[in-house]
Design a binder for these strands. Structure first.
Length: 174
DNA sequence: TGCACGATCTCG
DNA sequence: GAGATCGTGCAT
């Protein structure tokens, strides 16, 4: 299938998070071998007003890429040991991103980063131009669960309770 | 310049 | 239930 294009990523994070379910994440390794995974769990982070979004602290060196156009890669180190993979969505100057939480049977954002061997060097790459990571189209999945996001209890009630975590119906969420 | 903490996971 | 492990944001 074809790579997802700019029009796919430039929509809002909640829509993109839902529609990424079932899509194919492609990873090309250093030895040119290729792995393909089905995206099974995602989470949406939307704008500076979303207290759970890193961009709620404003534009900083870390959140800078979220202010770029959709399709860029946002990665960051959590707990000093796990690189989490995010896809920037929306238009320029409005920070939004989708966290990839599950691939096939591998559920957990930290585990996803590990099996994909994600590190700091992926920060700012673009899913339309990177030679080692992109996402390809697949039939739209319309059957999924919408659940609260994980690990963001510090956010205010309104944001803490948003059901912005999405899991493919055929897979179990955490 | 220092410090507390985090979009986590594994082991015991 | 605790430890691993470190970049970031904010206080000092």
């Amino acid at each position: 299938m074809e790579k997802l294009n700019y029009n796919f990523y430039k929509r809002d994070a909640v829509t993109v998070a839902q529609e990424l379910l079932g899509k194919t994440l492609v990873r090309v390794w250093d030895d040119a071998s290729v792995s393909r995974y089905t995206i099974t769990e995602t989470e949406a982070y939307f704008g500076e007003e979303d207290q759970a979004c890193h961009a709620s602290k404003g534009r900083t060196k870390r959140t800078e890429i979220m202010y770029a156009s959709g399709g860029h890669v946002y990665v960051y180190l959590i707990y000093g040991m796990y690189w989490l993979l995010n896809v920037v969505t929306g238009n320029e100057k409005h920070p939004e991103a989708v966290l990839i939480r599950g691939l096939d049977e591998v559920i957990g954002s930290g585990k996803v980063g590990r099996i994909l061997k994600i590190d700091k060097s992926f920060y700012g790459e673009h899913l339309l131009y990177s030679p080692r990571i992109w996402i390809e189209d697949a039939p739209l999945e319309t059957s999924f669960h919408a659940l609260p996001r994980i690990g963001i209890d510090y956010a205010g009630e309104e944001w803490r309770n948003k059901a912005w975590r999405f899991t493919l119906h055929s897979h179990k969420g955490q």
